[in-house]
């Protein structure tokens, strides 16, 4: 049986990446995912219901996340909520994407440093 290389899904759409990171430490329902994304981006990204569930639909179909069977105690939480978690494949895709972004950031820093060290270049610090 063929295996999908996690790098084939790279680069991930930003919403998918945010959701994968939000779910990396455990299962969450939609609102908790939205709040976690908001928290980890310092309030810069707020996902609306359409963005969140559109992304979740595509991530479910790509096998990046899955809906969990467990439902919370109705006394504690609304039992109609749906909870999601990352799959093993989703975690591998997240790792591959994180490594790609790290390489990109390193390259960007290296180029900025090089530019600063070359005073003759237009736009460099003097």
């Amino acid at each position: 049986m063929a295996k999908i290389d996690p790098q084939e899904l790279s680069p991930l759409p930003v919403a998918h990446l945010h959701i994968l990171v939000a779910l990396a430490d455990g299962e969450k329902h939609g609102y908790a995912v939205m709040r976690e994304v908001e928290r980890m981006t310092d309030g810069e990204v707020t996902m609306g219901p359409g963005t969140l569930y559109g992304a979740i639909k595509r991530m479910l179909s790509a096998g990046l996340v899955e809906e969990t069977d467990e439902r919370p105690d109705p006394a504690v939480d609304d039992e109609r909520r749906r909870y999601y978690r990352t799959t093993g494949f989703g975690m591998r895709v997240l790792t591959a994407e994180t490594e790609r972004l790290e390489r990109l950031v390193r390259t960007a820093h290296a180029k900025q440093t090089k530019r600063r060290l070359q005073p003759g270049l237009k736009g460099s610090e003097t």
Binding site: M1, A2, K3, I4, L9, G63, E66, G88, F89
Partner: peptide, 9 residues
């Protein structure tokens, strides 16, 4: 089509 979910797990 075979979903990635089916082949990746």
């Amino acid at each position: 089509r075979t979903q990635p979910a089916d082949v990746a797990r």
